[in-house]
Design a protein around this nucleic acid. Structure first.
Length: 346
DNA sequence: AACGAACCCAACCGCCCAACG
DNA sequence: TCGTTGGGCGGTTGGGTTCGT
């Protein structure tokens, strides 16, 4: 049984709002406020559905709406919150004064999402899209075990023939992941991985995650994460987890700092020397766009420092690579607060 | 200049859920 | 307990604009 329409469909105007309609709505709300959206259009003399009026007000006419291009800081916030909350646009909007959920959603879909994809980052999981390089199974060592494709393609990518033994690669690539999966990792496995890691380092042009930098020879611009801190779970898991899990997470985040999934993305280019962000900020300091983000402090996102908004998509991409995608909750970010926006139960 | 493709975003749609009688 | 209602949400659409050829 479908829900009854919120209003009579017939005789009600649809489509773009005219300035006259806008003025009527604004005038009415300024005089009477908004409360009952069903009766509002009739009282305001509008041939519109109440729902349409509400949307128009909340997404466009509200006086505190901030129009115009998203600042770098706002984009950064959106990405970080999206990594935690997923497509909870209203919850994200609650952290961005003046921005509406609709606007953020549109901006995500039209700008950020595409940019992340271009950068080889999965906009859903916020993890590197290694699948683009046929390396997806590396992400999960279990999957890797079952995938000969990864082995073949990685070897092809690296120009290695015969292919590397997948088990050796797995151990080399995922010492941390192995630990992550098993809280009591077998020490010998770790040592073995270190050894194999060292062997693979000797392959020209190839470094593993243990190295501060990774360069993919066939990619003009690839951002590869360094697993800086070991993390308890994938951020996506958080957004899809049960309330109790979210509650637990929020509690743990608030009570004592828990290292969140934190990647450091290094900007790599085929015609540009690698920028080592793990050791020094000097390379970034040479560029104005980078300078304002030179700090790796987790509080940088919400700090009051002056941000120089990158004017081009490319500049923003570079900056994302370097600093934005650190899945680390800033000190000022009270998870409980925006959790409450979603689930006002505690 | 003309045309089609790609992009952008305001607005709509349909579902969900809490409040209420 | 159940049905109805209002409000809110995320996903989708479609028309206008910009871009590329």
């Amino acid at each position: 049984m479908g829900r009854a329409p919120c209003c009579e469909k017939s005789g009600l105007k649809k489509g773009p709002w005219t300035p006259e309609e806008d003025q009527k709505l604004v005038d009415y709300i300024q005089k009477h406020g908004y409360g009952n959206w069903r009766t509002l259009p009739k009282n305001a003399g509008l041939q519109r559905c109440g729902k349409s009026c509400r949307l128009r007000w909340t997404n466009y006419l509200r006086p505190d709406i901030k129009r115009g291009r998203f600042s770098f800081e706002e984009e950064e916030t959106i990405i970080q919150l999206h990594g935690i909350l997923g497509n909870k646009w209203s919850a994200i909007a609650a952290r961005l004064p003046g921005r509406t959920d609709n606007e953020i959603k549109n901006y995500w879909n039209t700008h950020i999402r595409k940019r992340l994809l271009r950068m080889g980052i999965d906009p859903v999981t916020h993890a590197p899209r290694l699948d683009l390089l046929d390396l997806s199974s590396f992400v999960n060592p279990c999957l890797f075990n079952n995938s000969s494709w990864a082995q073949v393609n990685l070897s092809r990518l690296l120009g290695i023939d015969p292919p590397i033994d997948p088990e050796q690669l797995r151990l080399a690539m995922f010492p941390l992941s192995s630990q992550h999966q098993n809280s009591n990792p077998a020490p010998q496995n770790f040592q073995e991985s270190q050894l194999i890691n060292q062997q693979i380092q000797e392959i020209p042009g190839f470094t593993t995650m243990a190295s501060p930098l990774v360069q993919f020879p066939n990619e003009a611009q690839v951002c590869q994460p360094n697993l800086v801190d070991e993390f308890p779970s994938n951020p996506t898991d958080l957004s899809s987890s049960s309330n109790s899990q979210m509650s637990d997470l929020a509690s743990s985040l608030k009570e004592d700092y828990v290292p969140f999934p934190r990647y450091e993305y290094n900007y790599c280019s085929s015609d540009q020397s690698l920028i080592d962000r793990s050791s020094t900020n000097s390379a970034f300091n040479s560029h104005d766009s980078y300078q304002s983000f030179a700090s790796s402090s987790p509080t940088a996102m919400n700090s009051n420092s002056t941000y120089i908004t990158a004017s081009t998509e490319d500049e923003r991409e570079i900056s994302y690579c370097s600093d934005v995608l650190k899945f680390e909750l800033p000190d000022l970010l009270d998870v409980n607060e925006f959790m409450y926006c979603q689930e006002p139960r505690w």
